[in-house]
């Protein structure tokens, strides 16, 4: 599984503060901690408090690139913020994210293509969040079609079914899982599937346990990547074990260590 560490996000108090004070050391520390814990890439989000995200994202990218060459996921709902981040990007990039809306796809698909970035496509549109599997698949198909039309490699597209909190939309959970399996049959080569994991437990008790259970189930439904907290060791152990059970890795007694040596 491709793991994108979620912790460099201005929504967290310490990161928001560090962005404000341009405290590079704190950002770099978080980057390295996440990589050490198993992150394959890092999400970078200026957060709602940033007054100037177009400039802040550049500062963040440059600060992180000083300490790692892992891919960075530029996380913003505003295409101009993502574009600004891409301008200073040396590492591989992930564009996080487009929706299924025409104007977003027209702006972000060419941008991702130009920078040879992976692209995350949320199955939402201006009409809101889909309420069932069929609506998700329809939006997913629109995103895939737009990528094909614009000659963007579909294997670099990561579709996100958009997880809702379990305490809000319990009835939708099974549909969300099922839609991941069906994303894969939209095209050949198949798009990949990603989730922003921690949303599932937003506002709930036992957040770590809920995240863990959902992740394991999602892997069973064909999940390829997740944006999550890699410092949650139980979560990482559960993911590694789930992939073992899916025969993605060869068993040995120290399989958890073995995975981390990868």
């Amino acid at each position: 599984m491709f793991i994108i560490g979620e912790l460099i996000n201005g929504m967290y108090k310490n990161i928001g503060q560090a962005i404000k004070e341009k405290n590079k050391a704190l950002i770099q520390k978080s980057a390295l901690e996440q990589i050490k814990a198993g992150a394959d890439a890092l999400d970078v989000n200026c957060g709602p408090a940033s007054g100037d995200p177009v400039s802040d994202i550049q500062w963040l990218v440059q600060a992180i690139q000083e300490v790692t060459d892992k891919p960075l996921a530029l996380d913003s709902s505003k295409p101009q913020v993502i574009e600004s981040g891409l301008k200073v990007m040396r590492n591989n990039a992930v564009v996080n994210s487009t929706t299924a809306d025409t104007e977003k796809l027209a702006a972000l698909v060419p941008l991702a293509k130009k920078h040879r970035a992976k692209l995350i496509g949320l199955t939402i549109s201006a009409k809101g969040i889909p309420q069932n599997k069929d609506q998700r698949l329809e939006l997913a198909a629109n995103i895939v079609a737009s990528c094909v039309e614009q000659d963007f490699p579909v294997e670099d597209l990561y579709l996100d079914p958009v997880i809702l909190p379990v305490n809000v939309a319990q009835a939708q959970m099974h549909d969300i899982l099922e839609s991941m399996r069906e994303f894969k049959i939209i095209s050949e080569p198949a798009p990949k599937c990603i989730v922003g994991l921690s949303n599932v437990s937003q506002g709930s008790c036992n957040r770590s346990l809920i995240n863990r259970a959902f992740l394991v189930m999602a892997l069973g439904f064909g999940l390829d990547a997740a944006i999550l907290d890699p410092l949650d060791k139980d979560l990482m152990d559960a993911a590694i074990t789930a992939e073992l059970i899916l025969n993605k890795n060869i068993y040995c007694d120290s399989y958890l260590d073995a995975y981390r040596k990868k």
Partner: peptide
Amino acid sequence: DINIAKQLNILISDMGLPL
């Protein structure tokens, strides 16, 4: 035995000998 082969490589590398 592939499982033992992998385990032994991990045990040896844990002692500091690179894989």
